[in-house]
Design a protein around this nucleic acid. Structure first.
Length: 814
RNA sequence: GCCGGAGUGGCGGAAUGGCAGACGCGACGGUCUCAAAAACCGUUGAGCUCACGCUCGUGUGGGUUCGACUCCCACCUUCGGCACCA
């Protein structure tokens, strides 16, 4: 009976049994309350790495816990299978992206099973399957029909050597990672989604429990700012349109001593004077290689050139020189600013460098006006140098100035967002084709819904042709126009893979529906997601996109409620044993397959959960594995080794065992509810040690022992599913441990009769005293004052104050 | 650079504003053994003290409080994100 714990034999056995019995499949007809537990699905790159295990071990543990709490749990898994790595493999190794992806998925599935995960595989979705991307295309059409999709020019990284568009990831120090060519910025007409239509709503997080930090990051990412657009006429012949700038400080308009356009601003070409053309073009060329991060850095010296043209300040009629500079971004606001060097530090530095005038228009100190400023003064004082507005206090300045501009027709108040519309076009093969056709007679024609999916052609070629791979497949590109059957061409861009992952949680509820992305009934039953887990690295993009999709779906009347995921928990990043990010080049990668072979899946899962707080991540600690294995063997020992039982055990000993059990249940339950897996394991270690000590100290009361053992195995089950199942069976309990009810604690049994109070004098611990729990303040004070150490410290003085924290501490302030 | 986290023994970490260091690793000492492994027991923040004990100690500097790892301000270090990696 008491044989050794051999993880490999039992793990294989139980994985096969669970799969055969399909005990983790969620039924749509189960009458129990449902719980939708969702873990962000992976991109199937070569191997399921330790970072994946870190995430899915925690998610799996929580899903198993919710099952034991009595919920009908849906815990699906799938694959975010379109994307760049498959295409890179195709280009580098000549393999087919579809085949490469399928092989990886097979490997992922094998590894998921090896870790003892409790996913419902009957609901699997693979985003690169036509059955799935057909509906991704359907989403595109819905957003298009609702006016949420539009085309506009947008910059892309262009490698002149490879003749292709590069992802930011493929650009290293301004050069192509493959060919080392200098990467250029090239403008292409691309598709956008109007996520900014939902910006204000996305700023609200009502009714959802998301980490504060994620809400803050999303709020800052959306970056709402109130201000005004001001329109400046341009003093250039044949340029009729005005130069519009967004500013949060329209009240400083009299201090605008120059204008700055982003180098890529559309007006630059037309306003540049003949004399400045050469330097302007050179500057545009030079800045076209910079990233936004470089451009926004406040550390670098400001650069820029004059266009030679002037704008007219509509408030004064005076001329203002127009410059271009890289610190103004084409993608924020209108891509142009009025520069007020006296009150904006960036403008100040620029003005100093290029000798442009600095005119203060606010001051609280008359003397300030004559002295040259040493830096920009962002706030304070009354308006000066501002014609009719002089003397206006800062608090009233903006409304007054904007009202004037609105009356004069050269400005209006507005709200600007840092958030940009979502660029979804990718000039790539391995993605879902955008379902539109370009027709000379009918323009942009959406593919009719009943013609979906627009299938990806097989056998793509990846020669450097200057166009996306799909463009080169004539028989695919040339199609009849859906309107009249005349000649037309398919859109050859594919969709950003974030589109696939923006709605996958909806497909899981009805994954095989051939008629619709999902049925209304099943959506109503399962959605929204109750608990979502995934990396904090997705804080802004994926988590914002999926909220946008959901809100659009709500407006389409296909889902109910305002938010897609009610609760979110972000696990941290698991680092290598050296505290560095795991990477092959650093040689600090911990391979899950090796760990499972050495220690078993249960031990590896537990070790990952034990290394630290799940939301913080941190270094993987391989030496700690010994402690986890010791603990699992200890559980094995208390469950399998003979125990001497006796009905006549002294009540106090039985009471101690039961107290340990019920305290553990209380603490473990609190911990798992909060994803505090590391402390949960600590508590279980304490319980197993307490049981071992009780057993070794003499006979145990049989019912109390059985209660402890049951609780220990039930609470270990979500963490170490195989060994707990094995021991549960050996105890003769009904299959499966994972389908049992989570243990409950009795507050009475978990409570202490006696507590140890800390006794402080002036905030310093001077003694401790054991007293009955819940003692009255008078009794406690009397007992404390009688302590010799306290008497010595108090020394006959009258305490100024006595602070009493029940059952914890007494502090005597002298 | 901007936004968001984190910093506690030799190591991973624990701690509703209330005993800093739970739990685990490692180390040291011991039991068992011919021996080893396994298992079990004990010690383990620093300094001072024969000792009862005392002092110091949670990245740095300041503040609030009877009391601060915890709250506030500034700084340093480090990790994640920055829109075509997913």
């Amino acid at each position: 009976m008491a044989d050794r714990y051999e993880p490999h034999a039992i793990e294989k056995k139980w994985q096969a049994r669970w799969e055969a019995d399909r005990i983790f499949d969620a039924s749509d007809d189960d009458p129990r309350p449902q719980w939708y537990e969702l873990a962000m699905f992976p991109y199937p790159s070569g191997d399921l790495h330790t970072g994946h295990w870190y995430h899915y071990s925690g998610a799996d543990t929580h899903a198993r816990y919710m099952r034991m709490k009595g919920y009908n749990v849906m815990f699906p898994m799938g694959f975010d299978a379109f994307g760049l790595p498959a295409e890179n493999a195709a280009i580098k190794a000549g393999v087919d992206p579809a085949g490469w992806t399928a092989t990886n998925i097979d490997n992922f599935r094998r590894q998921f099973k090896m870790m003892g995960s409790s996913f419902d595989w009957s609901r699997e979705v693979i985003t690169s399957d036509p059955d799935y991307y057909r509906w991704t295309q359907w989403w595109f059409l819905q957003l298009f029909h609702r006016g949420l999709a539009y085309r506009a020019e947008a910059a892309a990284n262009w490698c002149p050597g490879c003749q292709t568009v590069l992802a930011n990831e493929q650009v290293v120090n301004g050069r192509c990672e493959r060919s080392d060519d200098i990467v250029e910025r090239r403008f292409l007409t691309q598709w956008f989604f109007k996520i900014t239509d939902y910006a204000d709503e996305l700023l609200r997080f009502d009714g959802i429990e998301w980490p504060e930090r994620i809400q803050t990051m999303q709020t800052n990412w959306i970056g709402r700012s109130e201000g005004a657009i001001l329109h400046f006429p341009v003093d250039v012949p044949r340029v009729e349109e005005r130069l519009s700038v967004f500013t949060t400080r329209p009240d400083t308009v009299y201090g605008a001593t120059f204008m700055v356009l982003a180098p890529e601003h559309p007006l630059v070409d037309r306003i540049t004077t003949a004399g400045q053309r050469a330097v302007v073009e050179a500057y545009i060329q030079a800045t076209s290689r910079e990233t936004d991060v470089e451009r926004l850095s406040t550390e670098r010296e400001k650069t820029g050139v004059s266009t030679g043209a002037n704008a007219i300040n509509p408030f004064t009629g005076g001329p203002i020189p127009i410059w271009i500079a890289d610190y103004v971004l084409g993608t924020y606001g209108t891509g142009a600013i009025m520069a007020v060097p006296a009150h904006d530090q960036r403008d100040f530095e620029f003005a100093q460098k290029f000798g442009l005038p600095i005119v203060p228009v606010f001051s609280s100190d008359e003397a300030n006006v004559t002295r040259p400023l040493e830096r920009a003064v962002p706030h304070g004082g009354r308006m000066i140098n501002s014609g009719p507005f002089d003397g206006t206090p800062e608090a009233e300045a903006i409304p007054k100035v904007v009202t004037h501009a609105e009356a004069g027709g050269f400005g209006e108040r507005t709200v600007n967002y840092r958030l940009r519309d979502w660029l979804i076009s990718r000039q790539r093969y391995w993605g879902a084709p955008i379902p539109v056709v370009h027709c000379e007679r009918h323009g942009i024609v959406p593919v009719p819904e009943d013609s979906l999916p627009v299938l990806l052609p097989e056998n793509p070629h990846f020669e450097p042709s200057g166009q996306s791979p799909l463009t080169q497949i004539d028989e695919w590109v040339n199609v009849p126009c859906p309107v009249d059957g005349g000649p037309a061409r398919r859109e050859t861009d594919t969709m950003d893979t974030f589109m696939c992952s923006s709605w996958y949680q909806m497909r899981y509820v009805d994954p095989h529906n051939p008629e619709r992305p999902f049925s209304r009934e099943l959506a109503k039953k399962w959605l929204p997601v109750d608990q979502y887990t995934g990396g904090a690295d997705h804080a802004v993009m994926h988590l914002l996109y999926t909220r946008f999709f959901w809100k659009a779906a709500r407006d389409m009347n296909i889902v109910e409620g305002d938010e897609p995921m009610l609760r979110l928990f972000n696990q941290g990043t698991l680092l290598g044993p050296d505290g560095q990010k795991m990477s092959k080049s650093r040689g600090n990668v911990v391979a899950p397959d090796d760990q499972v072979e050495k220690h078993g899946a249960d031990a590896f899962r537990c070790q990952l959960m034990f290394v630290g707080p799940w939301d913080q991540g941190g270094p993987y600690n391989p030496t700690g594995m010994a402690g986890i294995e010791r603990w699992l063997r200890r559980i094995w020992s208390v469950a399998t080794e003979p125990v001497e039982v006796w009905d006549g055990v002294p009540a106090a000993a039985t009471r101690d065992l039961r107290r340990a059990t019920h305290k553990a249940i209380r603490a473990v339950t609190e911990d798992i509810e909060q994803f505090s897996f590391n402390t949960m394991i600590s508590r279980l270690m304490e319980l197993s040690t307490a049981m071992q000590k009780a057993r070794d100290a003499g006979p145990v009361e049989p019912r109390a022992w059985d209660e402890s053992l049951e609780a220990l195995l039930l609470m270990t089950a979500p963490l170490a599913p195989h060994v707990s199942e094995e021991l549960w069976e050996r105890l003769g309990k009904p299959y499966s441990v994972h389908l049992q009810a989570w243990p409950r604690f009795d507050p009475e049994l978990a409570s202490d009769d006696e507590v140890e109070l800390v006794v402080q004098v002036n905030g310093k611990v001077r003694d401790r005293i054991r007293l009955p729990a819940g003692a009255s303040e008078e009794d406690v004070q009397a007992a404390v004052m009688a302590l010799p150490r306290v008497a010595e410290q108090v020394d006959g003085k009258q305490p100024r104050r006595v602070i009493y924290v029940p059952d914890r501490l007494v502090n005597i302030v002298l």
